[in-house]
Amino acid sequence: MYGLKSDVALDLPSKYYSLEGYEKGVARWCPGCGDHAVLTNMQKLLREKQLDPAKTVFVSGIGCSSRFPHYMNTYGFHGLHGRAFPVAEGVKFRRPDLDVFVVTGDGDCCSIGAGAWIHAIRYNMNMTVLLLNNEIYGLTKKQASPTSRIGTVSNTTPDGSILPPLSPVQTTLGVANASFVAQTADWNPAHMYETIKAAYEHKGFSFVHIIQRCPIFQGALVDEQVSNKDAMVYLENENGITVSEEIAKTFKNKFNHNPSDLSEARNLAMDTEKVHMGLFYQDKNAPCYDDYGASNLGYTVEQKEEALNKELDKYAI
């Protein structure tokens, strides 16, 4: 299967994985940090999908949010600041049998990792990406990030930051071959759950922007975000992300957006007054670079030997 030799693919007796089966250790994030909710939801998703922990890989960069893989009982790669994407791509390239998740922060993805991010969108490899955006550098203790809004007072911008924030959703929608772009928030776990589930089910680079609270360094912002119910807009559509009626009712504003409409998606992403929750854009037919990666798996030693001999013939004298 998947080009792996049959004699190495181990047949495990079918086994039910409980929630505990995906948990590892006690998360060391601050109390009230939005990352906790994402972790819990992710463990639930893996249980619902009954993913084999041995065949699941979480790749992250560096930051508070990038500690995520340490709390999952799967394989994890907690690598370098800003460099989660290339590693995840390399993992997936010749291993279509692995489920790959990327967890990254706003500094990790949108600042130091911006180049790799743009290209990861374009490669459109089958992986689920969670950008945990607290609009601040958490781990290094409160520096403005590219997503911090104008006027953010931080240790490197004591007089308030002066540049407009970069919108991760808008940026992703601007890149060729974007195939799944959604937005959710950590304080609406039910919506977040449906969003990451839809992301996991999409084949391609599923980008989920999670607005995430940092009570320590962005305390004021947290209150504003959570309490400002006027700003939140639920994107509803039969092809979008659907939450239970109960949850849908909690949204004051709703907007019917067809996720195949890229230019409307872009307009919504540029709206700085409103926060749209749900699926901005999906293209199920965008080419995936991992199809290329898996295009010639499983050559035998004999085939490789023959190919090498053929090449050597060309240089024979």
């Binding site: 790669f77 690598g79 010749r94 290209h119 990666g293 050559y299 490789k304």
Partner: peptide, 30 residues
Amino acid sequence: VFKNSGGLVHQAEDEIAAVGFAIGSSYAGK
């Protein structure tokens, strides 16, 4: 010649990504 012998070349977006990709592949057993 790689494609006919079970391998592939990945041209990354820069050298940082190139080595990161290689490390990811190695980590995953290739």
